[in-house]
Deep mutational scan, measured.
Amino acid sequence: IEKFKLLAEKVEEIVAKNARAEIDYSDAPDEFRDPLMDTLMTDPVRLPSGTVMDRSIILRHLLNSPTDPFNRQMLTESMLEPVPELKEQIQAWMREKQSSDH
């Protein structure tokens, strides 16, 4: 029984630690959010139409349809242009958020 109590305490400790580690990014500025999924972008790319999306989301879309989801023009992965300035701004915002939450 004592071992179970210790195990339960350890589990509670881990759960509390994980809860502290989770950071809420739901208040991200609109320009940091993917327009299709409304999630925080981690690897922004510009489509030929000028729309900026997260790379993982547009690549997932391209698996089903080789088109720009906003104007239905033909689109391939090679046409995606990285946006390193925005990526750095997002990373800086995330770092600031992490340091203010801890």
Results as ranks from 00 to 15, higher is better:
residue 73 Q to P: 00
residue 90 I to V: 14
residue 58 I to V: 04
residue 31 E to G: 10
residue 80 L to Q: 01
residue 6 L to H: 09
residue 60 R to Q: 04
residue 4 F to C: 07
residue 32 F to C: 02
residue 52 V to F: 05
residue 30 D to Y: 06
residue 89 Q to E: 06
residue 78 S to T: 07
residue 41 M to I: 07
residue 45 V to M: 03
residue 21 A to T: 09
residue 95 R to S: 12
residue 44 P to R: 00
residue 46 R to T: 05
residue 77 E to A: 05
residue 27 D to G: 14
residue 25 Y to H: 09
residue 45 V to G: 01
residue 24 D to E: 15
residue 71 N to Y: 01
residue 7 L to P: 07
residue 42 T to S: 11
residue 38 D to E: 03
residue 31 E to V: 10
residue 13 E to Q: 07
residue 26 S to I: 15
residue 97 K to E: 15
residue 9 E to D: 12
residue 61 H to N: 02
residue 84 P to R: 08
residue 91 Q to H: 12
residue 57 I to T: 15
residue 26 S to T: 13
residue 14 I to F: 12
residue 9 E to V: 06
residue 78 S to I: 05
residue 57 I to L: 04
residue 4 F to V: 08
residue 56 S to P: 08
residue 5 K to R: 07
residue 43 D to N: 07
residue 7 L to R: 09
residue 19 A to G: 11
residue 68 D to E: 02
residue 23 I to L: 13
residue 61 H to R: 01
residue 36 L to M: 02
residue 6 L to I: 10
residue 89 Q to P: 03
residue 33 R to T: 04
residue 89 Q to H: 07
residue 49 S to Y: 15
residue 55 R to L: 04
residue 47 L to Q: 00
residue 67 T to N: 05
residue 99 S to R: 08
residue 64 N to D: 04
residue 39 T to S: 06
residue 34 D to A: 00
residue 75 L to Q: 01
residue 17 K to E: 13
residue 18 N to S: 09
residue 57 I to V: 13
residue 77 E to G: 07
residue 53 M to I: 15
residue 84 P to L: 13
residue 17 K to N: 12
residue 85 E to K: 12
residue 30 D to N: 06
residue 80 L to P: 00
residue 39 T to P: 01
residue 77 E to D: 07
residue 77 E to V: 05
residue 86 L to Q: 04
residue 18 N to H: 09
residue 101 D to A: 07
residue 75 L to P: 01
residue 50 G to R: 07
residue 40 L to V: 14
residue 18 N to I: 09
residue 7 L to V: 07
residue 8 A to E: 13
residue 38 D to V: 15
residue 35 P to R: 02
residue 35 P to T: 03
residue 54 D to Y: 00
residue 25 Y to N: 15
residue 17 K to T: 13
residue 30 D to V: 07
residue 51 T to P: 15
residue 19 A to S: 07
residue 48 P to S: 03
residue 84 P to A: 11
residue 54 D to E: 12
residue 60 R to P: 02
residue 64 N to Y: 15
residue 71 N to I: 00
residue 45 V to L: 02
residue 44 P to L: 00
residue 96 E to D: 10
residue 2 E to D: 15
residue 68 D to H: 00
residue 64 N to T: 04
residue 1 I to L: 06
residue 32 F to S: 00
residue 61 H to Y: 01
residue 96 E to A: 11
residue 63 L to P: 03
residue 14 I to V: 10
residue 56 S to A: 09
residue 101 D to N: 09
residue 61 H to L: 00
residue 97 K to I: 13
residue 22 E to K: 04
residue 41 M to V: 03
residue 32 F to V: 01
residue 93 W to L: 04
residue 3 K to R: 06
residue 29 P to L: 06
residue 23 I to V: 09
residue 78 S to C: 13
residue 29 P to Q: 03
residue 6 L to F: 12
residue 53 M to L: 15
residue 11 V to G: 10
residue 3 K to Q: 05
residue 69 P to S: 00
residue 24 D to Y: 12
residue 76 T to A: 06
residue 61 H to D: 01
residue 25 Y to D: 15
residue 93 W to S: 02
residue 68 D to G: 00
residue 81 E to G: 06
residue 75 L to R: 01
residue 97 K to T: 13
residue 46 R to K: 15
residue 65 S to Y: 05
residue 50 G to V: 01
residue 68 D to V: 00
residue 8 A to V: 09
residue 57 I to F: 13
residue 48 P to A: 03
residue 15 V to E: 13
residue 59 L to Q: 09
residue 49 S to P: 03
residue 62 L to M: 14
residue 24 D to H: 07
residue 28 A to D: 07
residue 102 H to D: 15
residue 9 E to K: 08
residue 88 E to A: 13
residue 23 I to R: 09
residue 58 I to T: 03
residue 24 D to G: 11
residue 74 M to R: 11
residue 38 D to Y: 15
residue 94 M to T: 14
residue 9 E to Q: 07
residue 79 M to K: 06
residue 87 K to R: 08
residue 74 M to I: 10
residue 51 T to S: 13
residue 29 P to R: 05
residue 66 P to L: 10
residue 81 E to D: 11
residue 57 I to N: 07
residue 38 D to A: 05
residue 52 V to L: 04
residue 94 M to V: 14
residue 79 M to V: 04
residue 7 L to F: 14
residue 92 A to V: 08
residue 41 M to K: 01
residue 54 D to G: 03
residue 15 V to A: 13
residue 21 A to E: 14
residue 101 D to V: 07
residue 28 A to V: 12
residue 94 M to R: 15
residue 74 M to V: 09
residue 2 E to V: 06
residue 98 Q to K: 14
residue 7 L to H: 10
residue 65 S to F: 04
residue 4 F to L: 14
residue 70 F to L: 01
residue 72 R to P: 01
residue 8 A to P: 10
residue 5 K to I: 06
residue 17 K to M: 15
residue 16 A to T: 11
residue 68 D to A: 00
residue 91 Q to L: 10
residue 68 D to Y: 00
